[in-house]
Amino acid sequence: MKILLRCLWCGDEFKKPRYEYNKALRRGHFSFYCCKPHSQAHHAIKNARRCEHCDTPMPKKAANRFCGRECITASRNHPEKPCTMCGLFFRPKSSRTVYCSRPCADKAHSIRMLGTGNSHYKDGTSYSKWFKETRPLIFERDKDACVVCSTPFQPITYERNGAPAQKSNLIVHHIDEDPANNRVENLLLLCASCHLVHHKSAVTPYPWFAEYTRQASESMTSKWKATATSLLTAYSSTTA
């Protein structure tokens, strides 16, 4: 004779001989399963160590106190404090956390790297600053357009540190591919497509770049040339 039972793991009904059922009760077993794998699966969870924060079973993790990183963080009851960048109060993940988010951390790092905070700072001169000050001269000389296909300048709006910002659709390209060499003869304007064609080609289809920049720079006004010469003198040490 068989008795109808319900599996404690999957919930399905199954039949078990009455003598086996009675034997299990006499041994103090009150949980029944339709098959051995379901019995093993349930016992693995039932006897597993539980997370100290959320009480979730952790099979095969007897040495762990928490089930994951979120519970580890939540278990640390650090008091709220203000973000040193934006002033917003937040609950830090550790006692050393000083920023409420990655954007705030990135913004603070950018500020620290300006001027004397940068390990590469040398008397206020650097090739990146030289490039930044020379860039407007290149746009003026090349008439705000790609020197290959004449694509005109167009501002592109994007988001930076949570605020709208703008950048150019044109790229100031280094002919010798040395970012430290920011002489006007080494720089020219390219659109993204022409810039990609140049770099992806085994041999550049634009071998006339150097001759173009030399002639274009020579044809500029004396004021433009004086500005370019002044920048070269100020930043000549950065090419050493």
Rank of each mutant, 00 (worst) to 15 (best):
P136H: 07
C104K: 09
G68F: 08
I3S: 04
E140W: 08
T84I: 14
H199D: 13
R102E: 07
R102N: 06
H174A: 05
M85P: 00
M113P: 03
P103I: 01
I111N: 06
V184E: 04
H53N: 14
P17L: 09
F66Q: 10
F89Y: 13
F66I: 00
H195V: 08
R26E: 07
C86P: 03
P136E: 04
G68W: 09
A24I: 02
C54D: 08
C100Y: 05
G115R: 11
K61C: 04
D12L: 02
T213Y: 01
L231D: 10
R160V: 02
R141G: 08
A163S: 10
L5S: 12
S31R: 14
S119Q: 15
L196Q: 09
K93V: 02
T84G: 02
C54R: 13
H78A: 00
A145N: 08
L231M: 13
S75T: 07
Y127L: 03
T84E: 15
L88S: 06
R91Y: 02
S128N: 13
H29G: 04
N186H: 09
C35L: 01
V203P: 02
K93M: 05
Q215T: 13
V203T: 15
L88T: 14
I156N: 11
L8G: 02
P136S: 01
L196Y: 12
H198W: 06
H29E: 13
Q40G: 04
T227R: 14
E80I: 02
A228N: 10
Q215H: 01
R50Q: 07
